[in-house]
């Protein structure tokens, strides 16, 4: 189902992942979150931006285990743990955060 942000309509797949990665913008992420009943704060953005950088570098969306480890390396152990990430993204950190980041669904994701 398509998603609307700033008066523009964007194509997504049946699970709500953005069809074209290049369409992404922060307002679109906020609109996706709103559709899920969530508001994005700076902690969410930190993870979303991290995922976009990860994708840029490796051309894949990381599995949750890999994401957790990599976040820990970059942002410290109090953020690099599953509990923290699940609290931010209750539908599954990799899955939900990747969606807001405009990435495809992670390979082997939770």
């Amino acid at each position: 189902m398509p998603i609307e942000a700033n008066g523009k309509v964007y194509e997504t797949d049946e699970e709500g992942y953005l069809a074209d990665l290049n369409d992404w913008n922060p307002d679109l992420a906020a609109a996706m979150a709103k559709a899920d009943g969530a508001d994005l704060d700076e902690n969410h953005w930190e993870v979303i931006n991290f995922l976009r950088e990860y994708y840029e570098e490796y051309q894949i969306a990381p599995a949750v285990r890999v994401l957790t480890k990599a976040i820990g390396k970059k942002l410290g152990p109090d953020k690099g743990n599953s509990k923290y990430l699940y609290e931010l993204f209750p539908y599954g950190p990799a899955k939900q955060a990747c969606k807001y980041a405009g990435l495809p669904k992670p390979t082997g994701c939770v």
Binding site: Q59, V66, K69
Partner: peptide, 14 residues
């Protein structure tokens, strides 16, 4: 086609 060669560098993280 998608250049998937950067993904080999992600293997270490996996």
């Amino acid at each position: 086609q998608k250049n998937f060669s950067p993904t080999y560098r992600a293997l270490e993280g996996y």
